[in-house]
Design a protein around this nucleic acid. Structure first.
Lengths: 217, 217, 217, 217
DNA sequence: TAATAATCGAGACGGTACGTCACGTCTTGGA
DNA sequence: TCCAAGACGTGACGTACCGTCTCGATTATTA
């Protein structure tokens, strides 16, 4: 939400002079971008096509976004608040992680898949977008894992200090890998097996901290 | 390896009619592509630039490759044979995996990083390249993990049947995730911690098979 | 005169939306095309060269013209108005025709020669251009002959009905033939002899109408 | 017949060493060129297409001809001998000219039209071909007119010295003009009217020589 | 009630790269 | 010596999008 930040900086909206931004255009642009991405694919997603389909001039798009990827990112962030709430407490680490990963995997194997693939691809070529994608979208996902881990430690489920960053890598890395590489399905079984492995790694790792400690010397 | 297939069809090379393919051009194209990718970045990697730097016509490139990504893939595969040999047997699963992951992580944090990022990005937009990348490059990496796991099972290091596919996901997924998302460094410590976690998951997972069995019912 | 038509549709120029066409670009393109044609020849006249010399993008050329020949045609038509006025009345058919043909022959033996050769060559390969060339340029030339003939008939110089179309063929045909085939010079003597022959044919033909009448039966 | 000249220089054919020229290839190339020209048009006539259709390598074409136009010219010259004989003596200038022009006009309005249009167009861009076309094909046509005129003067049909070059221009110029410009049909009526006009010009021109004489002063 | 200011659509502009076509040359093995 | 096959460097094609730039029109706040 590129200029929403500015708006949020001044909660008392200071109305600037001139014609205000058209909300219809903004909505049409975002919908147009998502429609093209999901129907014609990432390769067909360009500013001219978005503008044509939205009935909007290219200038209007460039005024508010610096690339098509930012439009898609904004579309994703607009959907987030609904699921923003943390994962419900199921009483166990494995249960919490399953509650988190199963919907994620399901969404990625359906509509969300192409969207994330496109954004990650774009991030490799555009450092500015990479930073936005990481801090605005990925960081939120990782934060949920962090909270779930913290909850597990409070419960005493993990016998030692757990690196929440590594935990997030262990959860999302394999998912991303399958999504991007396509060597296997993103299905329920995968979600179960993955969480099994992650929980095992977090609970039974005894040599880990030692090894890390040695490395730090 | 576009024309290697032909060569492999007839082990006794049957010389076809017409002027033979220029090996100098092939070499120049591959070197040109790698030079541009590593010096000017993925965004600067286009067919015209590769052709110009290689002193070659665009047509010659299009005759043998369908996109710049395939050239880079071929360059990578040309380098592979040197390290093609399996991981040396260190006597333990953890040692083997470290022997595998440490050089991988080191290479990706240096020259190989941008190359893999570019190829993975390209694969998201081009299904034909995605398939080639997966079967010719990624599959080879995964196969090494599979061999290491098999060795560990022969040693009796793992108390139960281990899913080698999931193991490969657990090893390469987090690496890829850090590479593409850039939220943390790809360093030695990460390699140690990752392998610790993976080994723990593979050795101490008792609930896993149960869970998978339940899902199969 | 590609967009002049639009202008003529609305004598009160109705300003359409969007950035208006650049008159500087149009002028630069036409001048560039004529310069290349007259200095480097027809073979060197291509869109890329015209665009480069005019400091203009290829797209801008393709937006308004469908080939280089149309640009040259427009250049010729832009020059026409100056000599658009009819041939001055010298008092005799022969005098009028000489007044018309001598400058034509002189121009074609100098700068205009290569230009017309190029356009006629192009017209043989492109029916769309052939039609434009015929109706916008050649028709104007033929119309002048028609007017001169009509004046001669008012004077009573021709004893019978004269076919103005045939007359134009007799005047321009041999000129074109010499220009394209290059078997003889396009000089003053040729102009005199040609007009002598044409006038003789128009004044002394007695058998013609008879023959034509017989053919009509 | 590009290298036929060499052969004719040594009536005693000196057999050169090596494999002799393939007559099948020569025939196939010429037929292929004419087929493409008459079926797909001048724009489609290129060496690669001719070679492909003839089942011949490009090199073989380039060895014997310098452009597609020369192939077509050779095809035309191969057909000439059949009509090479002079126009039969009908007893009058007008009859002879009609005997000459009517078949010419008929052929040009049918199959021969596109062929001549193509060659004339090509001649405007290639001086080497222009010269060959003029001396090998056009000169033959003009020579026939010259012979007819000479016959008429022997009969005493023309009261004064006639410029046979101008006569040929008057005959072929308008025909060419209509062929290339396409402003009117090349039909029987046109042939009659044209010959009427030409004969009138040749028989009744009294001022012509005077005027030419004045110009010479 | 203007005047000012920012936005909007439309669409032309200079660019860059695309992927294709045909050119004329070359390098094979075979006739 | 010629032939077919076919790869090669060269150059132009016409197209697609890029991001920028006028235009007239619209819609707000400010004077």
């Amino acid at each position: 939400m590129s200029n929403a930040e500015l708006a949020e900086q001044n909660p008392v909206t200071k109305p600037r002079a001139g014609r205000p931004r058209s909300v219809e255009s903004r909505r049409a642009i975002i919908q147009s971008a998502m429609h093209i991405l999901q129907n014609d694919g990432y390769a067909a997603l360009n500013i001219e096509a978005i503008a044509a389909r939205a009935g909007v001039s290219k200038q209007t798009i460039y005024r508010w976004w610096s690339s098509a990827a930012f439009i898609v990112l904004e579309a994703l962030l607009s959907d987030m608040p609904s699921q923003e709430g943390l994962v419900p407490d199921t009483g166990s680490l494995k249960g919490d992680l399953l509650e988190l990963v199963r919907p994620t995997v399901r969404a990625l194997s359906q509509r969300r898949g192409p969207v994330y693939k496109a954004l990650i691809a774009e991030a490799q070529a555009d450092p500015r977008f990479s930073e936005a994608f990481r801090t605005q979208l990925m960081a939120a996902h990782r934060e949920i894992v962090r909270a779930v881990i913290a909850r597990a430690q409070l419960r005493g489920e993990t016998p030692f200090e757990v690196d929440a960053d590594l935990a997030a890598d262990l959860v999302y890395g394999p998912i991303l890998y399958r999504l991007l590489n396509g060597h296997a399905e993103l299905d329920e079984t995968f979600a179960f097996d993955l969480i099994d492995a992650v929980v095992s790694a977090l609970r039974y790792r005894e040599a880990g901290t030692k090894r890390a400690a040695e490395a730090a010397e």
